[in-house]
Amino acid sequence: MTALGGTHYGARAFKVPIPGIGQEVGLDERDPDGALSEIETRIQQARAENEPKTEQNYSSAGVAFRIGVDLISGVAFGVVVGLALDSWLDTTPWMMILLILLGTAAGIRNVIRTAALETERQNRQNKQRDNR
C-alpha cells in the first residue's frame, strides 16, 4: 500500500505540463486517477476489516480434554446410581451392571455428540471462510 501524499502524490500533481500554444497534452499523462482509485481500494479494505469477525479456533484443543472425562463420568454415574438402586431394591448386583452398561453407552453418546458438534462447527467455519 503506497502512502498517500508525500512525493508520490505531489510529484504527480506537479507533473502537469504548462499548456503551450497548439500543444496537446494527453489527459492520462497526469494520471491522478491512480491516486484516487487507490483511496477507493483502501476504503474497501478498511470496510472489510471493520466487519464483525467470526470465531477463532480456540476450542479444538479443548475437544481432546473433554472426551476422556465424558467417558469416565458415564461409568461413574452407572456405578454410583447402580449401587444406590441395588441397596434400595435389594437387587445386587444387577442394577449396577445394567446402569454401568447404560452409563458407558451414555458416555459414548456424549463423546459422539461432542465430536459431531466439533465437526459441524468446523464445517461452518470453513464455509464462512470460503464465502469470503
Partner: peptide
C-alpha cells in the same frame, strides 16, 4: 468510512 467514501 462513509465520509471517506463521500469525500473520495
Amino acid at each position: 468510512l462513509d465520509a471517506a467514501e463521500r469525500l473520495n
